[in-house]
Design a protein around this nucleic acid. Structure first.
Length: 428
RNA sequence: GGGGGGGUUCCAGAGCGGUCAAAUGGGACGGACUGUAAAUCCGUUACUUCGGUUUCGAAGGUUCGAAUCCUUCCCCCCCCA
């Protein structure tokens, strides 16, 4: 069986590890957990790393706990944040928790004996914990001096914005989580991103001081792109795991568009290929980089894992049409249903058919009848800059009128903003 | 409580009565090149019925004319007590 820590190490996923952790894991089936913040109703590609870490942990024979932060989500983690966070309402929080729980369930194995995964919600042990009990049972064991020494706190104390008592207390709440799981679930390891190191160590310290127990920590590095910019963002915003927020096609494209340098990293971080397999892939890619083997393998693997085989095939079909053999003649042979299938996952807008029969000016179409551009001014600038294509033909005049003659199959307009951003306009 | 500095377009940061929709840099977006890569170069970066219209912390005022001057208010930073 794979050595968990060794596996993380060659993948570049080991940022910090508490002394003794490897030895502890070597003793046998060990329980460990990672917490997920319910800041949205879906996880995104950034949290995918943590999910996969739990999966690797389980594959290495250990017992993973995924903790959803029903309680901590009510407080707000100050780590890595330069300003106080807004509190979420309880309704939103519950909605988010449900969504995240759903996603976690599709990755982990909950029925494999001793190391079956479990999902826990820290709201369960905090909901009946009174404030007085908390400050007596938890607060007494950690000094304020200790808490203030944490980077996340220190930075905010030095900054102009300050920090509320609520956020200051966050690390203690999370620390108590670790203690609770340690005490009741025999969970001795907490993992997370490097920004969580301070919070995690507060937990191990808490366990030591309160019960004289021993607990361990592993963190992964913050993922950045090779050029140093933030990972997981595109023009459209975050890349989410939920198909409602980021379609499988867009998800696939996100990975496919990775630069060579990034793809080499991502394939180690986000797939389960072995070291040999990864090396072979990279070598093959170096021999004929134009084939984009690395990106294609990466994108296919992750899309399948997150959205399933069928979704990948649809994404591939769409990609193939849009970027390889996307002739209009081909499209014209298809039924409406087939066209819509190809364009599944592409942003779509519906316009009034009567209106296009009388003719719609380009600017009106792009900025008012659809949201392809935010204003007529922007549309005009884009057209002038040569960045707008309709039905595979560059739009050169912003005064251009679109009529029913432009409709493909008497129904569709394919609009491109730049080369890669497609939109489907449907007249009905 | 006393003294000083400051709030400018996505960000940083110039401007300090007209030539300012506002320098410069960054970011973002687009174009060329390419491999839907990287690097590089180029363009755009408030809205518009293209006549204008609304922008420089907020509200008033002076002026033919203000981001630039005055008044009040809100917010931030620094020094002294």
């Amino acid at each position: 069986m794979m050595n968990f820590v060794e596996d993380l190490r060659w993948r570049g996923l080991l940022h910090d590890i508490m002394p003794g952790t490897e030895e502890k894991l070597a003793e046998g089936v060990t329980a460990g957990y990672i917490g997920f913040d319910p800041t949205a109703d879906s996880l995104h590609v950034g949290s995918l790393l943590q999910i996969l870490t739990l999966v690797r942990f389980q594959k290495a024979g250990h017992k993973p706990f995924a903790l959803v932060g029903g309680a901590t989500g009510m407080v707000g983690d100050p780590s890595g944040k330069s300003a106080e966070r807004n509190l979420l309402s309880e309704d939103i929080l519950n909605h988010n928790l449900a969504g995240i729980k759903n996603q976690l369930e599709q990755f982990l194995d909950f029925d494999c004996g001793a190391n079956s995964a479990e999902i826990v919600n820290n709201y369960d042990w905090f909901k009946n914990f009174t404030f007085l009990d908390f400050i007596r049972d938890a607060g007494k064991h950690i000094t304020v001096n200790y808490m203030m020494a944490k980077d996340s706190v220190k930075k905010r104390l030095e900054s102009e914005v300050g920090m509320s008592f609520t956020e200051f207390s966050y690390q203690l709440v999370q620390g108590y989580d670790f203690y609770y799981l340690w005490k009741h679930k025999n969970c001795v390891l907490q993992m997370g991103g490097s920004d969580q190191w301070g919070n995690i160590v507060t937990g191990t310290e808490f366990i030591r001081r309160k019960d004289g127990g021993e607990a361990f920590a592993i963190t992964s590095p913050l993922i950045k792109k090779a050029d140093g910019t933030k990972f997981g963002k595109t023009e459209g915003g975050n890349i989410w795991l939920s198909a409602d927020k980021t379609s499988p096609y867009q998800f696939y494209q996100f990975w496919l568009n990775a630069s060579d340098a990034d793809a080499e990293n991502y394939i180690k971080i986000f797939t389960f290929f072995t070291q040999n397999e990864v090396e072979e892939l990279i070598n093959n890619h170096l021999e004929s980089p134009h084939l984009r083997l690395l990106q294609k393998t990466l994108a296919a693997d992750i899309t399948t894992r997150v959205h399933g085989q069928n979704a990948l095939e649809t994404a591939l079909k769409t990609t193939d049409f849009l970027f390889n053999n996307g002739s209009l003649d081909f499209l014209k042979q298809l039924s409406t249903h087939q066209v819509l299938q190809i364009f599944e996952g592409i942003p779509q807008f519906t316009i009034n058919k009567d209106e296009i029969e009388t003719g719609i000016e380009a600017l009106t179409l792009f900025a008012e009848r659809t949201k392809i551009f935010t204003s007529k001014g922007e549309s005009k600038k884009m057209i002038d800059g040569g960045g707008v294509t309709v039905n595979r033909e560059k739009v050169t005049l912003s005064s251009k009128i679109f009529s029913e003659l432009d409709l493909i199959n008497n129904q569709f307009l394919i609009v491109q903003k730049g080369k890669k951003n497609y939109f489907l306009v449907i007249a009905s």
